[in-house]
Amino acid sequence: MKIILFVLFFLSFIKVSVAQLQFEFTWKGKRIELEKVYLFANNDSIQFSELKCYLSNISLIDQKNKVSTIAPSYFLIDLEDSNSLVLNSALDISKYRRITLIFGLDSSVNNSGNIEGVLDPIHGMYWAWNSGYIHSKISGKSNRVPTKKQEFEFHIGGFRAPNQTYFNFELPISGNNIQLELAPFFDNLDLKNENQLMIPGKKAHDFAKSLTALISIK
């Protein structure tokens, strides 16, 4: 009996030691926390009230170019829900060389009838009038926004070409943390004139494209 317990204990320990992928939003390399104040280079301030995005179709590629897919295929990252930041998988990522994934959800998901789990529109990441998922929500406030409440709110989505907002990309695995670095995105944004986005279109496409370029593994 004791031996079994010992083995069980040992097994559970092995499981924990599997290197798992984590997701984090960062501001100049620091992990972002909701409602905390961050600074631009000129000391303008910014804080976030909501950070959410979909990742999908994650595959890992090993030394021999063998591809393994992480199931389930869809992940809804929500900074408010720490469980959502760990991309649980039985695969030990330290054994792999490269990773491919989609930032967002591709058109087949947007067109299909599957709305189970993280795809359930109940999570508020869905546009009903223009069927399709909101791939990312980035909201908060900054003194750069010239309104009374100083709030900005970006709902980025849309899957119809040429304004699709999902992007496929591949990265070398150089750590366990998938990071989305937001400072350069806001540096290039004119928050004075652009602080709301609620519809698919060219703007959403451009936003999603520049966000994708800011994803790295550390």
């Binding site: 947007n110 067109n111 299909s112 009838g113 709305i115 529109p121 009903a128 009038w129 069927s131 399709g132």
Partner: peptide, 10 residues
């Protein structure tokens, strides 16, 4: 705007 009957009722 709606591409699937199942999603219409939302």
């Amino acid at each position: 705007g709606v591409n699937n009957l199942d999603k219409q009722a939302i």
